[in-house]
Amino acid sequence: MHTPAISIEHLRKTYGNLVAVDDLSLEIQRGEFFGLLGPNGAGKTTTINAIVGLVKPTRGHILVMGLDAVRDYRRVHRLVGIAFQELILDGSFLNVREILIYQAGYFGIPPRRARAKADELLERFGLWEKRSAKVQELSGGQKRRLVLAKALIHDPEILILDEPTAGADVEMRLQLWEMLQDLHAQGKTILLTTHYLEEAERLCQRVGILHQGRLVSLGPPEQLARERGQAHLEDVLLELIRSERS
């Protein structure tokens, strides 16, 4: 049996008295399209930031393809591409093409290959016409696509997407879904956080629902809905949140 793409073991993260993630254990298999769901503040972003080393776990371990995310962070980073929820782009003095070329460089890709890879992604994500533009000149949708292209610049095996369609209009959301389905079809493992439940139902093979830092439900979306006698994940999530409150 293959080593899981991501294995989270008893992850706990606290900020003072606030428990952001509480004893989370979870495995994501290679080639899986996995969704991490939950309301705001559920611990989704903290979890994915812990996978890429931006958050230091208070307790617990994370293994990526069998490598320790803290000890072997450099090798782990080669395997993972991350698109943050906030449109973080190094755009103060670099244009769109340069952003991708520099990002490739940080991953050790030589300049000629970096330029070729950047151009390929600019074409693929419909940004070629904007290659000389500054980030400030891009629309929200174009920035979103650039963030995704940046995450793919080193051709990672695992793609982590934090709310990839947040703020996107319907058309752009459909476009992004299509792109993500293509990437999954190419064999990428995808971990996506979202609070658009329709998105999870459409794209994800399995979902984990986080609430107040704890994993409260795990399984294929339709199974979770069926088991709880609900038509959609949205109803499952609402039921879970209400039962937690009562």
Binding site: L54, I88, D90, Q103, F107
Partner: peptide, 13 residues
């Protein structure tokens, strides 16, 4: 601006 994350999630030590 948060773009320090570009370096921190790369294989750079």
């Amino acid at each position: 601006y948060g773009n320090i994350a570009d370096f921190l999630v790369s294989p750079l030590s």
